[in-house]
Design a binder for these strands. Sequence first.
DNA 1: CCCGGGTATTGCATCGTTGCAAAAGGCACC
DNA 2: GGTGCCTTTTGCAACGATGCAATACCCGGG
Lengths: 344, 344
Amino acid sequence: MAGTTLRDVAKRAGVSIRTVSNVVNGSVPVSDELRTRVQAALEELDYRPNLVARNLRRGRTGMIALVVPELDVPYFAELAREVITAARAHGYVVMLDQTDGDGERERELLGRESRATMFDGLLLSPLTISAEELRSRTNRVPVVLLGEHIFNGDFHHVAIDNIAAAREATEHLLSLGRRRIAAIGDQPYSTGETAQLRTIGYRQALERAGVPVDEGLIVPTSRFHRHFGAEAMERLLALPQPPDAIFCYNDLLAIGAMHALTRAGVRIPDDIAVIGVDGIQEGRYSSPALTTVAPDKARIARTAVGTLIAVIDGTAPPPAESKAPYRLVVRESTAGHAAPARPR
Amino acid sequence: MAGTTLRDVAKRAGVSIRTVSNVVNGSVPVSDELRTRVQAALEELDYRPNLVARNLRRGRTGMIALVVPELDVPYFAELAREVITAARAHGYVVMLDQTDGDGERERELLGRESRATMFDGLLLSPLTISAEELRSRTNRVPVVLLGEHIFNGDFHHVAIDNIAAAREATEHLLSLGRRRIAAIGDQPYSTGETAQLRTIGYRQALERAGVPVDEGLIVPTSRFHRHFGAEAMERLLALPQPPDAIFCYNDLLAIGAMHALTRAGVRIPDDIAVIGVDGIQEGRYSSPALTTVAPDKARIARTAVGTLIAVIDGTAPPPAESKAPYRLVVRESTAGHAAPARPR
DNA sequence: CCCGGGTATTGCATCGTTGCAAAAGGCACC
DNA sequence: GGTGCCTTTTGCAACGATGCAATACCCGGG
C-alpha cells in the first residue's frame, strides 16, 4: 500500500537517502557510477516522490485554487479552461471549487477549517462576499479577484470595464436605429455590483444618444441563467409597447430571451435585436447566432495567474485593478442572417 | 509570512503542543479550563492548521482528481459540477485537470513526475490512453474510469450502456416514421471506442426495424464539437438524397448540425429530425429545443465518487462495470413545436 | 609523504502535525 | 495512608522529503 520512499531506494542502491534525493532532483552533482546505480533502483522500485512531504518541506504546494460560482455556467467553464492552461505554463496546477453563489460557501472557504492552507494562492470570483469580510478573513493567503465586485484597492483584481462594455453593447443596438432598448439582468441589491455597473453603462449610452430611459424596460433577474432570460423576455413581450432590442447582461440570459422570442414567433433581429455579454461558444451556434461583447478570457486568465504568482513570489506591485480587453462580436442576432458561420 | 503553528499556540496558552492539537481535533477529552485557555490563544493568533503537514502525517489528503478531456465541453462541465458536489458530501475536494484529448497529457498524468501522489484517488475520463498503459502506470493509485473505453475488468468503471442508448435514440427516430436516418460522430479508429459502440447501437436499431444501413449516411467526425456537427451536416445536405433524420453522437454535434440546417433553410423536425446524446442544458434552450438521450449525471457522479472512496478505504468489491441510467428527453427537434419550455 | 583545494557523499535537523504510550494528577476504596 | 483505577496531559517519534554543513574522498603540488 505505502509507496516506495527514498529510504527504500537508498537501501536498495546501497547509498544514503540524501544521494538518492540528489539524483532525483538533479541539483547536486552525483558521480556517474552512483547515479547509474540509483537510477536502476529507482526504476526497479518504481519510485514516485511523495509530493505531500516535498510540499511540507519546501513550504509550497504548486497548487492554486480557482473558485467560481458555478462550473456549468459556460463562461466560468471557459475561463477555468484558460486558467488551467495559464497555470500549467507556470508549473502550477489548479484546484477548482464552486460556491453555487452561496455566500455561506464562500465564507466557509476562508474560514478556520478551510483548505486554503493547501494552496499557494487563490483566484476568487466572488459573488456575495463583501470586501470587508474578505479582508478580515484572508490571512496572508495571496488572493487575486476575478470580475467586478467593488473593491477598494486592497486586492489585486482583474476584470473588464463593465460600464464601458455595457455602454458599447447598447450603442451597438442604437447604431441599428433601435430606440426602445430593454435591459435584462439588473440586480439592484447589495451583491449585484457587476449587474449594477452594466446598468450604468446602459443608461450612459441612452443618455448620450438622447434617448429617454424607460424604467419599465429594465428587467431585473435573480441570476444569470437561461431560464431567467426567457422569463424576463416573456414579461417584456407582454408590455403594451414591447422593445425593439434587448441588451442582456450575459449570453445565457440572451439565449433564454431568444428562446422565448422564437417560441412567440418574433423574428430576430428583424423585430427585436438581441445582444449579450461573455462571448461563450454556445452563442456561435445558437439560432440565430448571438451578437455579444466578448471579454478576452485567455488574457484575463493569463493576467490573473501571472499576478497571483507574482504575489506568491513576493514580486508583485501593490494591489491594483487590471482592466482586461474585450471586443464586440457581431453576429446574426443583430445583423440579419448574413454572417457566415465560423469554424471553431 | 509563516502561519501560526501549534507550537506558537501552545507557548501562548502555556500548554503542550499535543494538548492544543487535542483541542483542535476534539478527539481526546480536554479539561474545561485548558480548553478555554487554548481556544482563546487559537483565536488571538488566528491559528489555521497546516493541511499539508496534517496530510503527511495522516497519509491522506482528502483530495481526489477528476481528469476530463475538456472542461469547456458542457457535458464535462456539468459532470464536474456533480462530481464536486458528490465529493463534498464525503468530505473530499476535487482537483480538476483537462488533457485536451491529448494522449501525451494523459500519459504524463500517470508518469514519474505526476502529481498523482497528492491525491487519494483518481477519476479518469480517458480519451486516448489504452487499458494496457493505464494498468502498467497506475501504481496502486485508486482509479475509477468514467465513460466507455473498452476495458477488461481491471478497473472500476461507470458509464451508460452506449449501445442501448444509441439504439433507443435511433428507434425514437424510426418511431416518427423516418427511414433515411443519418449518424454523425463515428470514430472508426483505435481511440474512438465510445463512438464505435454508438454506431453498433445505431446499426442494431436499423436492422431490427428492417431498414437497410446506408454506409454513406454514417459520417465520422474527428471530435465531438459543434463545428464538426455543422460540417458533417453540410456534407449530408449535399447528398443527392439527403436524410430525413439525424442521430448525433452527442449534443454538441447535434447543435452544430441544427445550426447548419437552419442556415440552409431546412425545417426541424418537419424536414429533418435531430437527436443528440448527453442531455446538456444548452439543448433545452436551443432553437428548436433538442431531443436527447440524457445520462443521469448526478447518479454517475455519485456512483463514481462512492466507488472511488470505497477503493480508497479498501472496502470496495473487485473492479466491475457499473451501468448508469439514462433517459430519452423528447423536445422540439423531433416532436414539432408543441413541447412547452421547461424552467430550469 | 603531507597538505590544500575541490568535488562527492553523508548525517542531522527540520517542515507541522498526529499516533502511541508513558507520566501526572485526582479520587475512592480498602 | 497506601493502592489502584480512571482521566487528563505530555514527550517522543514518525510521516517523507530537503537545506545545511560537516565529512570523506581524490588529485596535484610542495
